[in-house]
Amino acid sequence: MTDILYTEQHEWVRIEGETASAGISKYAAEQLGDVVYVELPELGRTVEAAEEVAVVESVKAASEVYAPIGGEVIEVNAALGDAPEIVNQDAEGAGWFFKLKVDNTPATENLMDAEAYRKHIEGLG
């Protein structure tokens, strides 16, 4: 298993071979508050890195979620439909949003590792 990587907009991605799973960071979930709904992408859709791909909603806010890397959507987390609270409980695990089929060397130079992301969040005060 490879390490988890983050975007500046608080998405995470974990790349395992040709499959990458993605969601929003624990920090983002905390900032959003109680998640009430997640709008997931259609299966089979091909997305570019940084393309808007999902929406996550709390009672009073809606945030667009951008694809951390490009690829084809091959699976979405159907469990979030009935239980969006999973995002609050385990944002970077069971609360994943979607999986992408990616090529072997996806572009990750714009992504941060956990330590860099921790510093990024601190910088946001």
């Binding site: 709904y37 909603e57 709390s58 009672v59 009073k60 806010a61 809606a62």
Partner: peptide
């Protein structure tokens, strides 16, 4: 379901 509405979603 207010996140559909203009006061939250604005241009979207």
């Amino acid at each position: 379901l207010s996140t559909r509405e203009q006061h939250i979603r604005r241009e979207k």
